[in-house]
Design a protein around this nucleic acid. Structure first.
Length: 723
DNA sequence: ATAAAACGATTTTTT
DNA sequence: ATCGTTTTAT
């Protein structure tokens, strides 16, 4: 056995981790330290050297992309396909289990997967059906509540109201939701995990089978696991199957979504014989960038502890630009991008603009457009989340399954065919009163005289149409079915008739859906034994697809810091580094949130290979009219000064003269100018936002942060100007 | 049934 | 400001 290709590319620490014995292993892998590589080589090592069959390994990731990449790299390293190896997301693998054991899991064979939008619609409908006020029982919050319970492993029956009215109502909603899922054979994302966990907990033979099968369990991004995912892993592991977990506590940025970094501690507590490895050698960034990252993250208490290093070059200092406002910030970045490309430093797609919140992309887009810089914004709707795509899939679902009320509602009048709110609410009433599906209610109501002739006619036509469509697509190939649906439903014609770019792209998307159906890879063992159509629908729910297809021009990459995790770029701009924006003002209250913001910043910094530029704006418009004067983010001051070069604003930045032409005069008058900090006896420290008047009637508007912003008369307020 | 107007929220997001 | 949702008017 030639182990050279497996071990040679590894450094000492990586090699130790990869060749660790048959014990639980925890690898704390810093950014850019070869985390995936260790995972991939561990699989190869087990396979080739320890003669572990691929059938005996389970590798779990969070995203489909990570799963696909891991499989590709494993197969590439070993030079052959690894058919029996289970690599997938927590959800994908759970789904596979539930398909295989639907009966034991208490499901129907044809259960469908709800994505979060489907789930929201269902919750909405339940709240309405229960006659609750949806401004008090906000559907989004209710969905969040249900998911949180499930992620803690709790069913409605497990909860107690403790005589609390609100709690009681929440439990009622949860119960109704569970019943509705049961009735319509629907399984949401959290349910996939909870159901499969319960399956293993309750069915000893099944548990025994999988414990016998999976002798090795590997997990990526372990710091992102939530409570139920950790339980799920432990269930597979039992006492005998070691878990090989790779993660980085410093890159835990999804705590707000239920991820528990503490699982790292729990792991070592639960598995006393855990072998711990640290990967600290970084192969990505310059020494300077690593120093910046290290000293920033050093401000977080309670870390596992880790210091990234490189034997590479020191590199350039990090640049810091204090922009006048957000426009100036974007112009500065655009200039730098142009310089980068003109000086032949590299391609545009090696540059990333990272921001805390999506709204910040706008200004950059505007400036990039005006400068003719190609860019691509990440985030936003993905392919299978687009409205027209969901519509088309709803036709497909309803054609296959008359019970599917949510699909029925979605498309019954789309495109418009004369079935309005009135008809629909009659249908809903009938369905609820007679405990039947909307489809059956429609059939019944058409035959009665409860509807106006015109409505009854329209409804009748729809029912007949669906009948014909359902029969018409029988026996066709998946892509032919899809084509039939988008044409016959009138969706293509409907959007084609509309004007504008948006409508055009809708039609294109629908056509793309046919292509997606044609290219859909049924070979994937995750869909073993399923009808092609059903597999395709699951695929649509579980893997929402790429953001935008086909824009493979050389584009500057714009994305949130969260979205940047796992990526790397030659040049990285982290923008909007202001108190209140990053760290976000909304994460100041809860304990631990500031640390998570800091980790987010750490993630951003460690994306950069060669060049890192930080910017903040002294003034920034938020929510339209209000302009804030923020201080630079504390994260900037947590970086050693010797690593930073400050870029001074060019002499004559086009400061907007308009509102404050008076400012100069005012300053001479009072010693106060817009943007300066002042101290007030009662309100404390604040920043001057605006000023007006002169002499004894001179007034200033001061933002006192939490205490709000106020207009004060200078001659009464006794303001001290701070340096 | 469709369009206009009012209203409201506004960190981060995979599955 | 702006975008999505809901209500109201035609």
């Amino acid at each position: 056995m030639d182990v050279t290709p497996i071990l040679d590319p590894l450094n000492g620490a990586q090699r130790e981790a990869v060749t660790a014995g048959n014990t639980p292993v925890l690898v704390i892998a810093g950014a850019g330290s070869g985390k995936t590589r260790v995972l991939v080589h561990r699989i190869a090592w087990l396979c080739e050297v320890q003669s572990v069959s691929p059938y005996s390994m389970l590798a779990v990731t969070f995203t489909n992309k990570a799963a696909a990449e891991m499989r590709a790299r494993v197969e590439n390293l070993q030079n052959h396909a690894m058919g029996g190896l289970w690599i997938g997301t927590f959800h994908g693998i759970s789904h596979r289990l539930l398909r295989a054991h639907w009966q034991e899991a208490g499901l129907k064979e044809n259960f469908q997967v709800l994505d979060s939008e489907d789930q929201l619609r269902l919750v909405k409908r339940i709240i309405q059906d229960m006659g609750l006020d949806d401004s008090k029982w906000v559907p989004k919050q209710m969905r969040g509540y249900i998911n949180r319970q499930k992620e803690e492993g709790l069913r409605a029956a497990d909860l107690h109201d403790r005589e609390d009215q609100t709690a009681r109502q929440l439990i009622r909603i949860y119960t109704a939701y569970e019943q509705e899922c049961e009735r319509t054979a629907s399984v949401d994302f959290a349910e996939l995990l909870l159901r499969s966990l319960e399956l293993l907990q309750q069915k000893d033979e099944i548990l025994a089978h999988y414990r016998e099968k999976f002798r090795h369990i590997l997990v990526d991004e372990f710091q992102d696991t939530n409570a139920i995912q950790y339980k799920w892993l432990k269930m597979f592991a039992g006492d005998d199957n070691p878990v090989f977990a790779v993660g980085d506590d410093d890159q835990s940025i999804y705590g707000w979504r239920g991820a528990r970094v503490e699982n790292i501690q729990s792991f070592m507590r639960d598995y006393k014989n855990t072998e711990l490895f640290r990967l600290e050698q970084n192969y990505r960034s310059t020494n300077t960038i690593l120093s910046v990252a290290n000293s920033l993250i050093d401000n977080n208490p309670g870390r596992m502890g880790k210091k990234l290093w490189t034997d590479g070059a020191a590199g350039e200092p990090v640049h810091l630009y204090a922009a006048f406002n957000e426009q100036d910030e974007a112009r500065f970045v655009a200039d730098r991008v142009l310089q980068w490309v003109e000086s032949g430093m590299g391609r545009r797609d090696e540059i990333a603009i990272l921001y805390r919140s999506n709204v910040q992309s706008r200004v950059f887009e505007e400036v990039f457009i005006s400068q003719g810089i190609p860019y691509r914004v990440y985030g936003g709707l993905r392919f299978f989340e687009r409205e027209e795509i969901r519509d088309a899939l709803a036709y497909l679902r309803l054609a296959r399954n008359r019970e599917d009320d949510s699909s029925f509602e979605r498309i019954v009048n789309k495109p418009p065919r004369g079935i309005g709110q009135r008809t629909l609410s009659q249908l809903r009433d009938y369905a609820r009163n007679h405990q039947v599906t909307l489809w059956n209610a429609a059939v019944k109501i058409c035959g009665s005289d409860q509807l106006a002739a015109r409505s009854a006619n329209a409804l009748q036509n729809f029912l007949e149409f669906m009948q014909v469509l359902g029969e018409g697509i029988q026996g066709l190939e998946l892509d032919e079915q899809m084509d039939q649906i988008i044409q016959a439903s009138g969706l293509v014609a409907y959007h084609g008739r509309e004007a504008g770019e948006k409508a055009k792209s809708r039609v294109e998307n629908l056509q793309e859906l046919v292509t997606a159906a044609r290219d859909f890879n049924l070979e994937n063992e995750l869909y073993e034994g399923m009808q092609p159509v059903d597999a395709f629908l699951v695929h649509a729910a579980l893997e929402a697809g790429e953001g935008q297809g086909g824009q493979w021009e050389d584009c500057v990459q714009l994305m949130t810091l969260h979205a940047a995790k796992g990526l790397e770029f030659a040049s990285v701009f982290i923008v909007g580094l202001e108190e209140g924006l990053f760290p976000s003002g909304m994460s100041m209250d809860e304990p631990g949130r500031l640390e998570e913001e800091r980790r987010l910043c750490y993630v951003g910094i460690t994306r950069a290979r060669q060049q890192l530029v930080l910017t903040y704006a002294e003034s920034r418009r938020r929510y339209g009219s209000e302009s804030y004067y923020n201080s630079p983010s504390r994260f900037i001051s947590e970086i050693p000064a010797e690593c930073i070069t400050e870029i001074r604003p060019r002499a004559m930045i086009a400061k907007p003269v308009h509102p404050n032409a008076k400012a100069g005069m005012f300053a001479r008058d009072t010693g106060i100018r817009v943007g300066c900090s002042v101290m007030h006896a009662k309100f404390g420290k604040g920043v001057v936002l605006d000023c007006e008047g002169a002499g004894s009637s001179a007034r200033v508007q001061v933002n006192f942060g939490e205490k709000g912003s106020k207009w004060l008369v200078v001659s009464y307020a006794n303001l001290d100007v701070l340096a």
